[in-house]
């Protein structure tokens, strides 16, 4: 079942459609995300498994001979809506599905760092602060004042740039409204090819409703992610439908 067909659970159901045919894998979203959310620059020990990556871009290789050779897959928290795997497992309500926006919230200040949510997440969208985040001397001046840096020993993840939602909410409140409407997360703003469309799945006139046929990764798990993808390339659809990786009998390039 597509996220577009579901009945509304929350007043807003923010989500994304990412056009994989437009993504060139430049990584602007990755850096913009890190800068926006006060992610510290990688220390020497940091790699793709122990760093803080709220948004990652995976490189996918076309296993079939036809079509484009490579696709780049930006992946952040998929904001699962049904049986959200990380929400049910957290022992102390540090993870919740927001009642207003449908965003899966992660509260670093409540988190005790058990990492159960990380094992529960099928998309590996969560990062753990293995050590204290640190910036070179003086670089604290470049921290975003609307985002609290996380401390060591807690899990963090994409929250659709909550600080920007807050700013939109504040601006709306000046005019007596609580509804922030559509705002722009950092990755959406940074994407040079406009591959990411951000919107509200509840809005029948919105950008997401007009995004045409979309698919999600690991739909079989039934978690109804609100971040969905679009592509005209068949091999990507086929790959997304298949759960679990099969070991390559031999390397994919012959």
């Amino acid at each position: 079942m597509s996220a577009t067909q579901k009945t509304s659970r929350t007043p807003r159901r923010y989500g994304m459609v990412i056009d994989l045919d437009r993504c060139t894998g430049c990584g602007a979203c990755v850096i913009a995300c890190a800068a926006e959310n006060n992610v510290a620059p990688g220390a020497a020990r940091e790699n793709d498994r122990n760093s803080i990556s709220l948004l990652r871009v995976f490189t996918l290789n076309n296993p079939t001979a036809a079509g484009r050779r490579t696709a780049f897959l930006p992946m952040m928290c998929m904001q699962c809506e049904h049986e959200t795997p990380c929400v049910t497992v957290c022992p102390q309500q540090a993870v919740e599905l927001d009642v207003l926006s449908g965003i899966v919230e992660q509260m670093p200040q409540r988190c005790l760092g058990c990492r159960y949510c990380m094992t529960a997440c099928p998309y590996h969208a969560r990062s753990f602060n293995w050590g204290d985040p640190s910036w070179p001397a003086g670089m604290e001046a470049t921290l975003n004042p609307a985002v609290a840096p996380r401390m060591r020993g807690v899990v963090e993840k994409c929250d659709f740039c909550q600080s920007r939602l807050h700013a939109a909410q504040d601006a709306a409140a000046v005019n007596g409204s609580l509804d922030p409407g559509i705002y722009t997360p950092a990755c959406v703003e940074a994407c040079p090819t406009q591959a990411i469309t951000f919107g509200d799945w509840n809005d029948p006139e919105g950008a997401l409703a007009k995004s045409g046929e979309t698919f999600a990764w690991l739909e079989g798990l039934g978690t109804q992610p609100k971040v969905r993808y679009r592509s005209g390339q068949n091999w990507l659809h086929e790959m997304a439908e298949r759960g679990g990786a099969a070991p390559a009998k031999e390397e994919r390039h012959g």
């Binding site: 602007a28 913009a32 800068a35 620059p41 001046a141 470049t142 004042p145 950092a186 940074a190 994407c191």
Partner: peptide, 29 residues
Amino acid sequence: SAGVFGVAPAAEHATGGGALCPVVYGAHQ
């Protein structure tokens, strides 16, 4: 108050076309 903390493209800039290279987003550091 402490200085530049975020960089975004200037909308539809004549030369930039409203987009920036990836590293620019971290260049304020």
